[in-house]
């Protein structure tokens, strides 16, 4: 299990990187953390002729938190984002999801942007990007474009990215103040790809559910948001039957079976995890509202 030969490019700037990409076209592959790519190369499931190693590109390793967004560069490692306190305060869902990404050692090297660009339906961070209605920033020799998450993922391991484009960063949109979030998944072993996973965001306002959304891991071809507010709107969170979204969930997912779990089992898991994450997210929202009304302080 050794990779096939390739030409290694080590650009120092985004301009240089996209210059190389423009030149090598579909024969090239971007290497960032490599935690998904290198196993594929080692098994020779892919043999790109050129690797554009962006690890030396300046300016891609920052996490920037604004009032509305968390922006991360293409070289931000999962672990860096996971332990970024300001990012956690702004968008707790990031850490809630990141702790489920493989094992810590993989998170030390793997990049969040890389896992989004890889577009694996079993990836956690694509689901987070979907739920936050985030934006992908892509640069090519021709310029920069922003791709809304809804337009980015096109299928399993497929995105709308051009072969000459480099994702330089993504922006996760922060939820409205007082929104609680939760992320849960089930894998055969701790750290494995999930059989199913669910991210939930719930906002309780004036004592009743005002907004409830889900996104999924491993049970949809393409990460996307499912708005389940209609099942709970106006209900008091303590009295809600959080399984009421089960039909909506069942209608939104299209799980496949594989050697680890059947489609039916994954559907069951998606429903169960939806119930659990919605409840957990709602509880957090209630706590946040409590905190807000107590202190008028910033959302945490």
């Amino acid at each position: 299990m050794k990779p096939a030969p390739f030409v290694h490019h080590a650009p120092r700037s985004v301009a240089e990187a996209v210059g190389v990409l423009a030149q090598v076209g579909p024969e090239g592959k971007v290497l960032a953390g490599g935690q998904s790519l290198i196993p594929i190369l080692n098994m020779r499931l892919a043999s790109p002729a050129h690797l554009v190693d962006i690890n030396q590109v300046a300016g891609l390793a920052d996490v920037v938190v604004t009032g509305t967004e968390v922006r991360i560069g293409a070289l931000v490692r999962h672990a860096q984002l996971e332990h970024h306190d300001e990012a956690y305060a702004a968008l707790p869902l990031l850490r809630q999801a990141l702790v489920n990404v493989a094992h810590p050692v993989i998170r030390n090297r793997g990049t969040t942007v890389g896992s989004i660009a890889h577009a694996d339906a079993a990836g956690e961070m694509p689901a987070v990007l979907a739920l936050t209605e985030g934006v992908v920033e892509a640069v090519s020799a021709g310029g920069t474009r922003e791709i809304a998450v809804a337009d980015f993922f096109e299928g399993a391991l497929e995105t709308s990215l051009g072969a000459d484009e480099l994702v330089v960063g993504v922006r996760f949109r922060r939820f409205a103040e007082g929104t609680g979030t939760a992320f849960m998944e089930r894998a055969r072993r701790h750290g494995d790809y999930a059989m199913a996973g669910v991210a939930a965001a719930v906002r309780v306002e004036d004592g009743v559910v005002a907004d409830a959304r889900l996104s999924f891991v491993s049970v949809t071809d393409v990460p996307r948001t499912l708005d389940v507010t209609s099942a709970f709107a106006g209900q008091e969170p303590d009295a809600v039957d959080w399984s009421a979204a089960a039909d909506l969930v069942a209608g939104a997912i299209e799980p496949d079976g594989d050697i680890h779990a059947t489609a039916a089992y994954r559907a069951m898991l998606a429903a169960e995890l939806s119930r659990l994450t919605l409840a957990a997210a709602a509880a957090r929202s209630v706590a946040l509202q409590q905190h807000l009304s107590d202190s008028e302080g910033p959302a945490a």
């Binding site: 196993p39 055969r188 072993r189 701790h190």
Partner: peptide, 10 residues
């Protein structure tokens, strides 16, 4: 990845 030898967690 797919032959599930237990980790310490299992």
């Amino acid at each position: 990845m797919d032959f599930l030898m237990p980790y310490a967690s299992e």
